[in-house]
Each structure stands twice: as C-alpha cells, then as structure tokens.
Simulated assay, not measured.
Amino acid sequence: MNTISKRYIVLGVVAIFLIIFLSKSTVTIGSGERGVLYKTFGGGVVTDQPALGEGFHLVAPWNKVYIYEIRQQELSEEMNVLSSNGLEIDLDATIWFTPEIAKLGLLHQQKGENYIDRIIKPALRSATRSVIGRYTPEQLYSSKRDIIQQEIFEATKEILDNQYVVLKNALVRDITLPPTIKDAIERKLRQEQEALEYEFRLSKAQKEAERQKIEAEGKARANDILNASLTDKILKEKGIQATIELSKSSNSKVIVIGSGKDGLPIILGDK
C-alpha cells in the first residue's frame, strides 16, 4: 500500500469520525420547546443558566439535551369522588398549565420528564377530592359549579406552588350524580319552582284585589264629595243654564217656565 493510499484511508477515517462527532454534537430545538443541558463531566443538570432556546445548538457529544414543551398544556381527569354525605360523584375536570421556563433545569433535576404523572395529576386529584368533599350533591347540581371550579383551581395551585409549574386555569366539564339522587333533586327543584310560581300568582291576585279596593274607595269618596256639593240651588242654576242653551237651538220647542219639578222649566216637543 503506497503513501497516497494510506493518506486517503486516514482522511476517510477522520471524515467518518467528524461526521459521527458532529451528529452527536448538534441538537435542534423546535418551536415551543426548550432544552435542558446535562453535562456528563460538568456537574450534571445545568440549573444556573437559562434552558437552550429554539433553533440549532452545538453540544459536546458526551453531554445530553432533554427537550421540554413550554406551550400551554391540557390535562383532563375523570375521577370518582365523594360528596360531603358520602355519595359517589363522577367528575370530569381539566386544567391548563405550563412548566416554569426559568426553572426548567430544576424541574428536570427534581421531578423528571414525566413530571405530569408525578406531580400534576396527583395534585389535581387531591385538590378535587378535598373540594368536592365539602359539598352536598344538591349544591354540586345547582349553581355552585363556578365556585367549585375556582376552589379546585386554588387548591391545585397551592399544591403546585414551588413545584416549578405554572397553573393557568381549571374547569369542571361535567358532574354526574347517581341516577336516584339526580331524580330526587330534580323533583325537589320542580316542587320548589311550583311553590314559587303559586306564591307569585297569589301575590299578584292579592295586589290586584288591593288595587280594585283602592279604586272603589276612591270612586266612593269622589261620589260623596260630588253629592255633598250638589245643593238644590246649584241644581236649579244648572237647569236654568241648560234651558238657556236649549232655547238658543234652531230646533222647534215649547218651554214652560216654572212648571217642572222643583220649579225647573219643562221642554216640550222638538223636530
């Protein structure tokens, strides 16, 4: 084997080595991700520096990069929990969360890549059981859902504080009661609604009766005042005024002065 052939062999080996080295020394971090660097000969997980951002990075081949998604993530859990009186309730809850980007190294070091199963799921389940255990099925079925959602969020957040996770929101998507309990609650609600409707109709009838009574009393008082004011002299004067107006009419008539009852004129005949 001549010198030139040996040189080509050496160059080929070096090229292969460089290709392997570069393939092991580069990492591409995608959109919505961060990379946690692990230094094999440099103290392990890097926690005192920001995680690697999106894009292309050169990394020593003996080190490793762990990729974490930093977008908002969703976790839904279907749980069987107990109400305050010991009845089983099926509940479907959802939370939104993100890892704490500034402490991604600590999250990897202390919780690991499966941190969702290790800390978030247990936190949600524990918080939900604690909150639901304070309410009766009737309260869970009624308008308490918004309050329950907020309490589950706060209880879960309290557990996840200092766990390198940012909790965004919590939602109770469905609450399923045992059929017998649900039917009993619905019957009770219908009865309460019917009672309220009856009270409304009764109140309305009472108010209408009061209105009619007040109206009748007003008319009676008005008639009393009018009757008290109509003396004989006033009536005669009104009759005379009416006679004068009639006498001005173009219709043929005969007026007998002073021949009517109480001395009022009598009008005879017209066209």
Rank of each mutant, 00 (worst) to 15 (best):
I175H: 15
E33N: 04
E217H: 03
V14M: 14
L177S: 14
P179H: 05
S25V: 03
I116F: 11
V27L: 08
Q163L: 03
T26V: 09
V13E: 05
K219N: 03
L167Q: 03
A242C: 04
A205Q: 15
L268I: 12
R145C: 01
N251V: 09
Y135T: 00
R201Y: 13
A220P: 08
L52A: 05
P178Y: 01
R211W: 12
V256W: 12
T28Q: 11
G53I: 00
R7Q: 10
I175C: 14
M1L: 10
D270P: 00
D262P: 06
V46W: 02
E151P: 02
D90G: 14
R129Y: 05
S25G: 10
G42T: 01
P179T: 02
L160Y: 07
G42Y: 06
G12I: 00
V172G: 14
Q49E: 14
V65S: 09
S31T: 10
I116H: 10
L177C: 06
I255P: 08
L11I: 04
E113S: 13
L52P: 13
K233W: 10
W62K: 10
V131S: 09
Q212P: 10
I175A: 12
G32W: 02
V10E: 05
K144G: 04
K236F: 14
T156Y: 09
T47N: 06
K168S: 11
L202I: 03
L189N: 13
